[in-house]
C-alpha cells in the first residue's frame, strides 16, 4: 500500500445474484482516500456508491459477490479479510454513519447505554468511567444538558440530535476513517448545516479521513476536497472540488450540474433524458451513451478508459481522446459556471 493513502480501493467489482441474473452493481471502481481529507462520492440511486462503501465495511448483503478487486487498509486486503478480522476494523477503525438516525439506534435502549456500551464492551472500562467518557462525547457533539439526556430514549430526541448521537457512537472508538452515507438527507436544511459543520469540526480536530456519500451537489461543494462522480457502477470522473464544479469534462457530470435548479436564474433546466441502464446486462460501451447528447459511435462500442486532465483530474469519456472532435460543454452550463465565478467575486468583496 502506498503511504499517503489511508484506504485504497482497486478495480472493485461487486455483483448481486438476482432473479433475472447477476446484477453488476459495481464495475471496476478505484478510490484513493488521502489522510485527513474528505472525498465525496456522488451519483444517482443505483449508481453503486452505497455498495462500494458496504464492500469496504464488509457488510454486503448475503447475495452479493465481490468478483474481483482489492481494498487496501493498513497493509491488509479487506476483500480477503475474515469476519474475525473485520471485528477489529468495523466500528473501531472505520466508523459508519447512516442516513436514517432513527433506525440505526436501538429504540428500547437508553441513549447513554448505547454510547457507553462501546467503552464497556470494547475497552472493558468500568461503568462509571464509561459514563464519564460518554458524557464527554455527548458534549463534544453538541448535545445540551448531557447528564439529563443520558437517561433518555431515542424517541425523545429530534432528528438532528439523533444524528449527533450516532456520530458520538461512531467517534467513541476513535476511528481513522468515517464513512457518512447520506447523513443529512433526512434532515431539514438548518439542521443539516449544523451537522455538516460538526462533521467538519471533528475531522479537523481528530485528523479523521472522511468518505462522504450524497446526491446533493451543494453538500459536496461544502464538504469535499475531492469528488468522485459515479454512474452505473463506475467512476466516470474524479477531481478536486473546484475541478469538478468549474471545469467538468464528462457529459454525465455536465448533465448532473445542469439539472440542479439554482437560485440565480429561471432558465429551463437541462434534464437528462431517459433512465439509468439495467445493470443485469450493462451496455457494451459507455453506460451513459444512451442518455448522452454528445455520444459518438465509439461510445456504443467500446468502454472509454480514464483520461488524465490534470494531476488530480480524470474523466472516462471518449471526448477527451486526442482524435475526438472538439466538444464544448453546453452553453447552459458555461453560463452557470460563469455565474458561479461572478458570485464568488461578489462574495469576496
Amino acid at each position: 500500500m502506498q503511504e499517503p493513502y489511508v484506504l485504497q480501493v482497486k478495480d472493485l467489482h461487486v455483483s448481486f445474484k438476482g432473479q433475472s441474473g447477476m446484477v453488476r452493481a459495481v464495475r471496476g471502481v478505484d478510490i484513493n482516500l488521502p489522510k485527513g481529507k474528505t472525498i465525496a462520492i456522488v451519483g444517482e440511486s443505483g449508481s453503486g456508491k452505497s455498495v462500494t462503501v458496504k464492500a469496504i465495511m464488509g457488510i454486503l448483503a448475503r447475495n452479493a459477490v465481490i468478483d474481483q478487486g482489492e481494498i487496501w487498509y493498513e497493509g491488509k486486503d479487506l476483500v480477503k479479510a475474515t469476519e474475525e478480522d473485520f471485528y477489529q476494523i468495523r466500528g473501531k477503525k472505520i466508523g459508519l454513519i447512516f442516513q436514517d438516525p432513527l433506525s440505526s439506534l436501538n429504540p428500547l435502549m437508553k441513549i447513554g447505554k448505547q454510547i457507553s456500551e462501546v467503552f464497556t464492551v470494547n475497552y472493558s472500562m468500568s461503568k462509571e468511567e464509561a459514563k464519564e467518557k460518554s458524557l464527554e462525547l455527548m458534549r463534544a457533539v453538541g448535545i445540551p444538558k448531557a447528564e439529563e439526556r443520558y437517561n433518555q430514549y431515542p424517541f425523545q430526541f429530534s432528528g438532528g440530535m439523533r444524528q449527533r448521537i450516532v456520530i458520538a457512537i461512531a467517534l467513541a472508538n476513535n476511528p481513522d476513517i468515517l464513512i457518512c452515507d447520506e447523513p443529512t438527507t433526512a434532515l431539514d436544511v438548518t439542521v443539516q448545516a449544523k451537522i455538516l459543520d460538526l462533521i467538519k469540526q471533528i475531522k479537523e480536530e481528530r485528523g479523521i479521513s472522511v468518505i462522504f456519500i450524497t446526491h446533493d451537489l451543494g453538500v459536496v461543494a461544502n464538504m469535499a476536497d475531492e469528488v468522485y462522480v459515479m454512474y452505473a457502477g463506475k467512476v466516470v470522473e474524479r477531481g478536486t472540488c473546484e475541478e469538478i464544479f468549474l471545469d467538468p469534462r464528462h457529459p454525465y457530470t455536465w448533465a448532473l450540474l445542469s439539472s440542479m435548479p439554482d437560485l440565480e436564474s429561471k432558465d429551463r433546466l437541462l434534464s437528462i433524458p431517459g433512465t439509468p441502464p439495467n445493470m443485469v446486462s450493462p451496455p457494451k460501451g459507455d453506460a451513459f451513451a444512451a442518455r448522452n447528447r454528445y455520444a459518438m459511435q465509439i461510445d456504443l462500442e467500446e468502454e472509454p478508459p480514464m483520461f488524465q486532465v490534470s494531476d488530480t483530474h480524470y474523466a472516462a469519456t471518449w471526448l477527451l481522446h486526442p482524435k475526438a472532435p472538439a466538444c464544448e460543454m453546453p452553453k447552459f452550463l458555461q453560463d452557470k459556471i460563469r455565474r458561479m465565478r461572478e458570485e464568488a467575486q461578489r462574495y469576496a468583496r
Binding site: 448545516a193 451543494g218 461544502n222
Partner: peptide, 23 residues
C-alpha cells in the same frame, strides 16, 4: 435569513467559507 443561509450552494468557491446564520 437563517433558512436561506443554510442552503448548501453547489459552488465550491463560496460554499466552503460561507457563514451560517442561526435563528
Amino acid at each position: 435569513k437563517a433558512l436561506l443561509s443554510a442552503i448548501p450552494l453547489p459552488n465550491p468557491l463560496i460554499e466552503k467559507g460561507r457563514k451560517i446564520i442561526s435563528y
